[in-house]
Nucleic acid binder design. Structure first.
Length: 757
DNA sequence: ACTGATTCTTTTTTT
DNA sequence: AAGAATCAGT
């Protein structure tokens, strides 16, 4: 007990030991939020004799849920399996599985991730002959999800204009399709379980009675519907303990509603907000920068982070000519940090959008630095895995049209658009799934052909209609049935293995030239199944499939070696690192240009920036590039306004060698002496920009002219050699070097650190 | 039905 | 720049 609470500061202790009442904890970045939550749970169980069975803890990501469970079990020797800890979506799934009948769902209902959802929408649109130029599937998806988030069914949405009426129509057909196939999208998980509780009084009583304590992490990220869902769970008697930081709300695009914090204050009669303001993570300068920046936002709940640590280093700012230079700079700095004893895994490279990782990866790869990219293409989103999952879905529930369409001709078995159309028509007539239609066709060559037709036509049409397409469809039906039968008595990993072998997927990718990686992923899927049955209490195939949809990421066939961490700012939330590089600080990128048109968009971007800054413990690099390649063309950018919102005194500007000259030529641009914002930052005139560019090239050319054919050189990695050729000029200058021991290579003078010997 | 070529389009962030 | 989607030719 005393060990449980030791080391907590006054506010933390206060929060942890609160009596049975609802509470709002406003917890700044790095203020020990997770610790407070987990300790509170442990404290409730240990000192208040609260049964783990009556505690529910909601987190925002699966990762956070896992970590919470792990921390609790180190504090208390209890079985955490009975506890309800998870994301909103995860918990809703759990509930719907338990009461699938009451919820009007088939036992094997499938969860659609966004990509699946788009696919279904596309199919639906095509099915009713809608013009997908005029109604882009993305927009339809957005409409549907928004409606669901507001708690509205297709029949309840009010439409006053043609466009909306059309959208509603799509929504209705989409709903129908989902119901028919037993599919549930993310928003549906929430809405469905919300409705279940609203309608079903017995269940509602059961749950609101069962949970005496509800704890919510990252409360600022909850949506309207999620909040209503919470209130339903809480009923009248539960103590609801929510922890959040309005400054770190970065999911408004997904429906997060900071206003929930104020509503909560009101709804649950919170008399005093508990504030955790001592930061245990970052040095003073970093914190000051973050605090100053975020003060530019309006309507914040008041809070100011402080630290008892010293100021530490200034933030380092780097102005790179191009994104390549930026990457090269980062690589250099990482190397010296690493050489100085900082573990690679303690260094993070953060960026606003996933696409930015490419340049960085390229540079890191060439420098042979170990790195790991989070997010981006996730494990369960890869095409080979999606294919494999589709086969598994067919085993679990063959009426899943979506899954069927994905794999009916993959690997190819001669089923083209023609036979598919046929099948879809049959299904429509039958009023059943594609699978049922396929079965019908396959199992009965002599189906009730219309008696009115004469014999010849029947024979004729049978030969043409049934024989030919039947071949393909037939083989598919046989295959799926064979796999299904083969799965009896098998464990989950064995089912996966069995499916992989017999579906032909393994053979397909084995034959593919670039298939090695995909093969590896397919095998990794077996491992994923193995670890799933070890961790989850429900080891059914349906459970595994739900898991795959809900937890798309975090399963990488990865090694645990010390590696740099690359991720978006969003996915860095909740993490901390010794050193952080924040790259791409340019207008249009961060803040992102799309945020301009959205209400509150800029403030959300600023919060995102705040999150990014507060990830760093000791050292923080901020960098931007004047030119950046985007969608295949170069864009000229001006530095992010957020840079300017950080006090000068906290920044230390780093300049590459060439830059010194530029500074002299164009004073007032690089130096940040007095002057209006526009002069300093941005609005570089076309002319001055040009001047900068020219001067850069000039210098480079001098740089390049240092090298000539026949010169003896050494390279850090390849050793000694002689220049045998050179081409290009300016930024593109390259030399061909014949190395004594490493063959002949073309090297870019810009990056290859050649030394003359 | 399949292949190769051409055009199009890109998510900002995630359950 | 790269991948997906569509189109044309076989």
């Amino acid at each position: 007990m005393s060990t449980l609470l030791s080391g907590l500061n006054t506010e933390q202790l206060n929060a942890v030991t609160l009596p049975h009442q609802s509470a709002l904890v406003l917890a700044g970045a790095g203020s020990g939020k997770t610790r407070v939550l987990t300790t509170r749970i442990a404290y409730l169980i240990q000192s208040r004799q609260v049964s783990p069975h009556s505690i529910i803890a909601v987190t925002f990501t699966n990762k956070a849920a896992k970590e919470m469970l792990a921390r609790i079990s180190t504090m208390l020797p209890i079985n955490t399996q009975g506890m309800w800890v998870g994301t909103f979506h995860g918990l809703c799934n759990r509930m719907l599985r338990a009461h699938y009948q009451d919820a009007g769902l088939p036992q094997t209902f499938q969860i659609l991730d966004s990509a699946d959802q788009i696919a279904v929408i596309k199919r639906v649109l095509k099915g009713i002959g809608a013009d997908d130029e005029k109604f882009p599937p993305r927009q339809v998806q957005w409409f549907i999800n928004n409606a669901k988030e507001e708690g509205l069914r297709g029949s309840q949405v009010e439409a006053y204009d043609d466009f909306t009426r059309k959208m509603v129509e799509f929504y209705l057909v989409y709903e129908q399709q989902c119901n028919k196939d037993g599919m549930v999208d993310f928003a549906e998980l929430l809405l469905r379980s919300y409705e279940l509780l609203t309608r079903n009084e017995i269940l509602r009583r059961h749950y609101s009675g069962r949970f005496s304590h509800i704890l919510v992490d990252e409360f600022q990220d909850t949506s309207q519907l999620q909040y209503k869902w919470l209130k339903l769970f809480a009923g009248a008697g539960a103590a609801v303990f929510v922890v959040g930081d309005d400054d770190q709300s970065i999911y408004a695009f997904r429906g997060a509603n900071t206003g929930n914090m104020r509503e909560f204050e009101h709804d649950f009669r919170i008399s005093k907000i508990i504030k955790l303001e001592q930061n245990y993570r970052s040095h003073g300068n970093i914190l000051d920068a973050a605090n100053t920046l975020i003060r530019n936002n309006s309507g914040r709940l008041d809070k100011n982070l402080w630290t008892s640590e010293g100021h530490g280093e200034p933030l380092r700012v780097y102005n790179a000519p191009t994104d390549f230079d930026e990457a090269a700079f980062i690589v250099d700095e990482v190397k010296s940090l690493h050489a100085g004893g900082v573990e690679l895994s303690q260094i993070a490279l953060l960026y606003r959008s996933n696409a930015q990782s490419r340049v960085l990866e390229h540079a890191l790869f060439n420098a042979s630095l170990a790195y790991r990219v989070y997010g981006g293409m996730r494990f369960f989103e890869r095409q080979e895995i999606k294919h494999a999952l589709a086969y598994l879905r067919m085993i679990a529930n063959p009426d899943d049209d979506n899954a069927l369409l994905r794999i009916i001709n993959f690997p190819v078995r001669g089923i083209g658009a023609r036979s598919l159309e046929q099948l879809q028509d049959d299904a429509k007539q039958l009023g059943g799934s594609l699978w049922q239609a396929a079965l019908e066709k396959y199992s009965s060559g002599a189906v009730s052909s219309q008696a009115s037709e004469d014999m010849e036509t029947v024979l004729h049409s049978r030969n043409k209609k049934i024989d030919k397409p039947k071949k393909g469809v037939n083989s598919f039906v046989v295959l799926i049935e064979a796999i299904q039968q083969g799965c009896d008595e098998l464990s989950l990993p064995e089912i996966v293995d069995h499916m992989l072998e017999h579906s032909g997927l393994v053979d397909y990718y084995r034959a593919e030239r670039e298939g090695a990686n995909r093969l590896e992923n397919l095998h990794e899927l077996i491992n994923a199944a193995t670890s799933y049955i070890q961790e989850a209490e429900d080891d059914s195939l349906a459970g595994f499939l739900a898991h795959a949809s809900l937890e798309a990421g975090e399963h990488q066939s990865g090694n645990n070696q010390d590696a740099l961490q690359l991720m978006t700012v969003h996915s860095a939330k909740g993490l901390e690192f010794h050193s952080v590089f924040l790259s791409g600080l340019e207008e249009g990128l961060f803040p992102h240009e799309n945020s301009r048109n959205e209400a509150g968009g800029l403030e959300e971007e600023r919060r995102l920036m705040y999150v990014a800054l507060t990830r760093a413990r000791r050292r923080l690099y901020l960098s931007f590039a004047q030119n950046r390649m985007l969608h295949g063309q170069t864009r000229y950018n001006i530095p992010s306004r957020f840079l300017q919102e950080i006090p000068d005194g906290l920044l230390k500007w780093l300049h590459p060698l060439q830059k010194k000259v530029i500074t002299q030529q164009v004073p007032g641009i690089m130096g940040r002496e007095s002057g209006t914002t526009d002069q300093v930052f941005g609005m570089l005139t076309q002319k001055s920009r040009l001047r900068m560019k020219e001067s850069t090239i000039d210098i480079r050319d001098t740089e390049a002219s240092r090298w000539h054919v026949g010169q003896n050189v050494t390279h850090a990695k390849f050793g000694a050699g002689v220049i045998v050729n050179r081409e290009g000029g300016g930024a593109d200058a390259r030399v061909q070097v014949k190395f004594n021991h490493a063959g002949t290579k073309w090297l870019s003078l810009e990056y290859a650190k050649l030394a003359s010997t």
